[in-house]
Design a binder for these strands. Sequence first.
DNA 1: AACCTATACCTCGATGATCGAGGCGTCAAG
DNA 2: CTTGACGCCTCGATCATCGAGGTATAGGTT
Lengths: 139, 139
Amino acid sequence: MTKAKSEAATGRRIPDYSDPSYWRGTIKMSLSKFFVLSVLHRKPMHGYEVVQAVEKSTNGCCSPSEGTVYPVLNEFEAGGYLASTNEVVQGRSRKVYALTEKGRDAFQVAVDAWLEATDCIVESRRMAAGAVKREEREG
Amino acid sequence: MTKAKSEAATGRRIPDYSDPSYWRGTIKMSLSKFFVLSVLHRKPMHGYEVVQAVEKSTNGCCSPSEGTVYPVLNEFEAGGYLASTNEVVQGRSRKVYALTEKGRDAFQVAVDAWLEATDCIVESRRMAAGAVKREEREG
DNA sequence: AACCTATACCTCGATGATCGAGGCGTCAAG
DNA sequence: CTTGACGCCTCGATCATCGAGGTATAGGTT
């Protein structure tokens, strides 16, 4: 049962942290709900449209799948963050979601929390750049 | 077996999205590994120190628990992103972790991915602010 | 008619990240 | 000798997301 060295320590496989897609994955993980609220803040949309709007508005850096978005929309609606109305377009019916007051509040909270985090991220890059500069100067 | 209305639709409880701690939670979820690399980019540290350094350097906005950090450190080491040396301080031995070249590369990749995401976040706030302004002007 | 593609919504099992509670041991102060 | 800070670790539970799959209609092509 000899396992690859990298698996031996933890018992499970280790992601490739040098691969941008790893980081994009975890970014997506926490930002999907945020961006769903974000695109709906601009205008009401139906689910399919939300999926595409998120992908487009984030330049593809956060593109949640339908399997993520639809349950999220349902949950948001059940929680009172969204209200849906039925719309019939060319014989086909679709559910159009709009942010409620509660939803707008929640989005504001989310924005604040994330801006705080982005400050930390930007700051950490500044620090890292500083460390590199110090190395160049002193090393 | 009548359930609360908010639970009926999805079958599971709905978090309070108006609560900052919800968003801080998901932020933490994706940024813990990032900030572990970040603080180790500044200087080598042992695990306990990493926990405190992350908390401090992010002003508490991302404070992973020990139960998160220790497994992460082991995984990073197993993957070759960190190298550890034993250090004895006052009779007590501790493992000091330092970023390897590979780890530095991975951090750079992470920073790039996150900066792209932060741009989207900032932009989404700008759009939201614009929408509010339009409402004030027109409504 | 049969077929394909785009639209539109949904479900389910698997994976992965984190928490929090707990365990284990050392050292120093009271 | 107990308490608290240090220091490392594990495990079960929870949650977010994926991706593959299912269902159905509209419009177009062959």
